[in-house]
Design a protein around this nucleic acid. Structure first.
Length: 258
DNA sequence: ATGGCAATGTTTCATTGA
């Protein structure tokens, strides 16, 4: 099974790119963030034509998450939102795909350390930690894929001194990320030897991408039984190239069939 | 020198993202 996660920064703007990427990589499951589309406007027909079922929770302008599953895979128990946490913002959707519980997450960005949005980010992560603890108790095969807006450690930052203590790198955010791992999840990227300076997001400005001034903030976390079956984790830098890219690149894993 | 780029709707600017 191949599972991917991609913050598309507007599915409307990125649909053609997504279709082309799906045609080449043929993942079984894709988690999308920042679709920025109300549910009535989700492009189910073109994605159906591309061979995918769509499950989504969106809103106008901001946020929006979706899970795509290759046609033929059985999908049950689709639920939007976080247990015991009322949130106007559409940032979490879960579905069981071919027996694996898949959670697609778009963690708040947080703007500036100690801002109102930063406090919301930390509260959101705390609620999601509780949600995932419960999910793991019910589903030993659990994958959490998304844009976490946290660079877990300095290897995930192009210039650690520049970013020290800044948004996405602060101690509290990194602790919140580690708290998710502590539930019993592994950062699939770190299960393998990886090229140094591998990132998943680059600012649109200042030639950040060609200079590889990026951060690794998009992750796929796996419960122990899935981590044991994981044979690869890659970030597709190619998808960030060319005209009108998303500012994020997709991350993909492959799970051995048992 | 506190900007820069991109997407969106409130649209020819303000807001947000990261």
């Amino acid at each position: 099974m191949k599972l991917a996660s991609w913050n598309v920064n507007s599915l409307n703007m990125r649909l053609a790119r997504l279709q082309a990427w799906l045609a080449v990589h043929r993942p079984d499951v894709v988690c999308l963030q920042e679709t920025k589309l109300e549910d009535a406007k989700f492009p189910t027909a073109p994605l159906d034509a591309a061979g995918y079922q769509s499950f989504y929770a969106g809103q106008k302008t901001y946020n929006g998450v979706a899970i795509l599953a290759r046609k033929g895979l059985v999908v049950v128990d689709v639920v939007a939102g976080i247990d015991d946490f009322i949130d106007e913002q559409k940032r979490l959707i879960s579905a069981t795909v071919a027996g694996t519980r898949v959670v697609c997450a778009y963690v708040p960005q947080g703007q500036i350390v100690d801002s109102e949005k930063y406090r919301y980010k930390l509260a959101w992560c705390e609620a999601v930690a509780a949600h995932l603890k419960n999910a793991l108790a019910q589903h030993p095969l659990l994958a959490v894929a998304g844009d976490f807006n946290v660079a877990p450690d300095d290897r995930d930052v192009h210039d650690p001194a520049l970013w020290a203590g800044q948004i996405m790198c602060s101690d509290a955010e990194r602790a919140a990320f580690r708290a998710l791992l502590a539930i019993g999840l592994a950062d699939s990227f770190r299960l393998f030897e990886q090229p140094p300076k591998t990132f998943s997001w680059w600012d649109y400005r200042q030639l950040a991408f060609p200079k590889n001034c990026g951060l690794r903030i998009d992750h796929i976390l796996l419960s122990t039984p899935l981590a044991e079956r994981c044979v690869s984790c890659r970030i597709d830098r190619e998808a960030r190239k060319g005209e009108k890219p998303s500012d994020h690149a997709p991350v993909s894993i492959e799970l051995r069939d048992d």
